[in-house]
Amino acid sequence: MRETTGFKTFRIVTLAALAVFVLLPLYVMITSALKPLGDVQGKFTWWPTNFTIQPFIDIWSTIPLASYFVNSVIVSTSASVISVIIAIFASYAVSRYKFRGRNAFTTTILSTQMFPGVLFLLPLYLIFINISQTLGIQLIGSYLGLIITYLTFTLPFAIWMLTGYFDNIPRELDEAAKVDGASAIGTLIRVILPVARPGIVAVLVYSFITAWGEVLFASVLTTQSSRTLAVGLGEYSTQVNVYWNQIMAASVVVSIPVVIGFLLLQRNFVAGLSAGAVK
């Protein structure tokens, strides 16, 4: 394919400008994490002259970062896995069956994306309290409450994306499995899921990232022992000081696993999106 000079210029300018935009904060984050506190409080310098890795050591004792880390991993993993499983069943139903209320179901699910979080934050808290009191299931300050909240937040997008994906899987595959005597669930698990793997990975990644970064609900639904990283990072500013270098070091630490995991899965993610959601 021939490329015009105009297109080449456009490409160079676009990529250069966006690369600077994307990388600048990441650069600042990483270099500031390698400076002593006094240096980050003064004028910004492009290179850490008093290079130190102390912030990466201090972050673990200033706040219980390790325990927040574990909390975030448990909550985000559980929420994304369960969300995907529930979304697979629901999307299969929507994609393969015509049933009463199907449209109402999909419309309602998608319209929850409009709900302003501030409107149902307090009611949700109260409902959790009531469930705790009547059923004895602790939902505030436990992983369970956060897990079911986050999995629900990601369900609408997950169901919508997987439905699109399943719609594009030829019905003939279902029929062939049925001929072989497979039940509906058997067909889903043995025939549909293997084909839909990229879509499932895409949904999994989306759900994980959403849960990993959520701030508003975590600030109300967690206590010290169940706090997640996203809100825990705020504790580096205290009554006495704002530990900018430690904030940056902790930001690097919490970003690395997600960024690496995401980048490893990105091919799947894009393939999943293009086959499912975007058609």
Binding site: T77, S78, V84, S132, Q133, Q138, S142, I147, T223, S225
Partner: peptide, 23 residues
């Protein structure tokens, strides 16, 4: 994944030591 999720839920149910309940 399903087993892990189930385990996490069980774990979550047990860790009600949040300290936010006087009751």
């Amino acid at each position: 994944a399903a087993i892990f999720a189930a385990a996490a839920l069980t774990l979550a149910g047990c860790s009600g030591s949040g300290g936010s309940s006087s009751s």
